[in-house]
Design a protein around this nucleic acid. Structure first.
Lengths: 338, 338
DNA sequence: CTGTTAGCGCTTTCAT
DNA sequence: ATGAAAGCGCTAACAG
């Protein structure tokens, strides 16, 4: 059996209270501290976090549940969160739901049972039972990439309606009129429906512009490729496509330009969302809507820590960022020539 | 204060033992089960995992510590691990070290304190104190993307020497002779030094071939771009580059072909490593060395679970996969024309 | 400043 | 089948 605090105390010739004090940095006598440290080393003692947490009632872990770690956008969010958390001695536990409500709920329940210090959450569906349960609980929650809505939770988000509007307005300003939006699954996330809403608004402002929606079963490169293959064969193709994220856009690009013979942007203009690192290096450099991903993660943890320390003022509860249009060759004849 | 098992028992009119039995699926009387479930629902009771684990001594969490979640290769490993773990009711806690030994150690210590059921680890440095500590501990460890070496840990890995050999042999067979290898930081991982070793072997087999090594401070798109910018200005450029991962290769491609005027593969041939989804959609479709990432993660958890259930035979302790050469335009005049 | 001790919430054994 | 009670390893309050 592993050594426990009692063993360390015996080995060092002190009491358990003293060992606990050393462990928690409230010991003062250098000689004692040294003896305890030596004993810990000698016995290979590792503190039992379950016992510590049970007694202390708090935890040094922060949960981060995102839609998909495979999406570099969320990887960047995680990096930002980790950086801010580490500065205060917290650890970030990452869960990836794959937009599956079952898995999302499983993670939330697990983290709730673990009594994590707080939960950072990009919900697949804010109205799901699992999400509501954690929102109703006493666990501090920061919604990430999701507006506060009716909940009392803090929120760090980017305006997706504006992003969708920026993307499609740009396509329209390039003279395109038959716009298609490629989204995720039908039971899609708030992000995607907001981007779509922004797209609709942009189209509504131009009389002869039309908008069609193509749903996929996942927001991945693979799913994008599948759509691209269909689009390539289709008789009445749209003249511009707004992909709801860069993964889909990259997949579209693969199918259209590499496997097919559709020229981008000449035959079909394309813009993605997130501006992941790969966008600039795509076969046709990909126009996109940039979001401050790392900053989002950083700010989310910052808000959570403030909440834990009760230094949260009303105006601090929500941080909204704005998306930014990045024009590259995939949507602009000018950029393509340049 | 949150409801505890005692409150549930009182509310349901049964004893705590009975509630515990219901919670753990060993209750038999349907009426009792229903009453307990109703009470749990009514009180919003959530089991305290710390107490449960303290008493039971076991945990349903598996830790996965990788070099970089921002690398789609590791994201895929995580996906595979998660899938296998979920099948047995385990949760995967993900930590990303960023190849930083301090952070790696912090994660390992944290997970050790949490008494996770097991650790899946891609070490930044197998010989670091933190890694040795967990290897010496009683926590089951599966090394991921790392051969077993001297340790007693299980291991799931891909032969990187072979991968490096495949990559550079291919460049040589295309007639290139002045090969450069772009690696990570000098205190680099085993994977990268093995890939380099394979590259050296391939070069050694061709009399007039030379090999140079370019180190970067991170294995990211950004670092690759920086190298590409230097390379582009350099008077005596190599005629072929083997990038130690696809992220570096994509960054190189950005700098060389989009920001610079180096033609790939005509002026400089390029091959990456991992065959991430983006490789096929790069500005010049990227040749790469494919690794079975998802399968790696899946198998790692499978091995861990077998170990936990004592169904591990000697020949099961190690699973070695083989890398596969994927030729695209970036390294092959033929593929570029095709 | 150090040592002793009462629980934290749960599981599980042992009576009933 | 159900209820009572003993601890899991730790922290913090209190006594020395």
């Amino acid at each position: 059996m592993a050594a426990k605090i009692k063993d360390v105390a015996a080995h060092a010739g002190v009491s358990v209270g003293t060992v606990s004090n050393v462990l928690n940095g409230r010991a003062r006598v250098p000689g004692t501290i040294d003896r305890v440290r030596t004993a810990i080393e000698a016995l290979g003692y590792v503190r039992n976090d379950a016992a510590r947490q049970l007694r202390a009632g708090r935890s040094r872990s922060i949960a981060l549940v995102v839609l998909d770690v495979g999406n570099p956008f969320f990887a960047a969010v995680a990096r930002g969160a980790e950086a801010r958390a580490a500065a205060d001695g917290y650890v970030v536990l990452l869960g990836s739901s794959g937009q599956d409500i079952k898995r999302e709920t499983a993670y939330l329940d697990q983290f709730h049972e673990q009594r994590v210090a707080g939960v950072l959450l990009t919900p697949a569906d804010v109205h799901s039972v699992g999400v509501q349960r954690v929102l109703d609980s006493s666990t501090p929650v920061v919604l990430v990439d999701e507006p506060p809505g009716a909940s009392k939770a803090c929120s760090v988000w980017v305006d997706d309606v504006e992003g969708g509007y920026l993307a499609v307005s740009h396509l329209l300003s390039e003279g395109r009129r038959r716009i298609a939006v490629v989204t995720g699954p039908s039971s899609t996330t708030r992000q995607v429906s907001d981007r779509l809403e922004g797209a609709r608004r942009a189209v509504a402002a131009v009389p002869d512009a039309t908008l069609s929606v193509i749903e996929t079963d996942a927001m991945t490169v693979l799913a994008g490729r599948a759509v691209g293959e269909r689009l390539q064969l289709s008789a009445d193709r749209p003249d511009a496509v707004f992909a709801a994220n860069d993964l889909l856009a990259v997949g579209l690009l693969q199918a259209l330009t590499l496997m097919g013979d559709v020229r981008v942007p000449e035959d079909m203009s394309l813009i993605g969302y997130d501006d992941i690192d790969f966008a600039a290096a795509a076969v046709v450099p990909l126009s996109s809507i940039r979001q401050p991903a790392t900053e989002l993660g950083w700010t989310a943890v910052d808000l959570l820590l403030r909440q834990l320390n009760d230094e949260l003022t009303a105006e601090n509860r929500e941080r909204r960022f704005r998306p930014e249009l990045v024009i590259r060759s995939s949507s602009s004849a000018a950029a393509a020539r340049g």
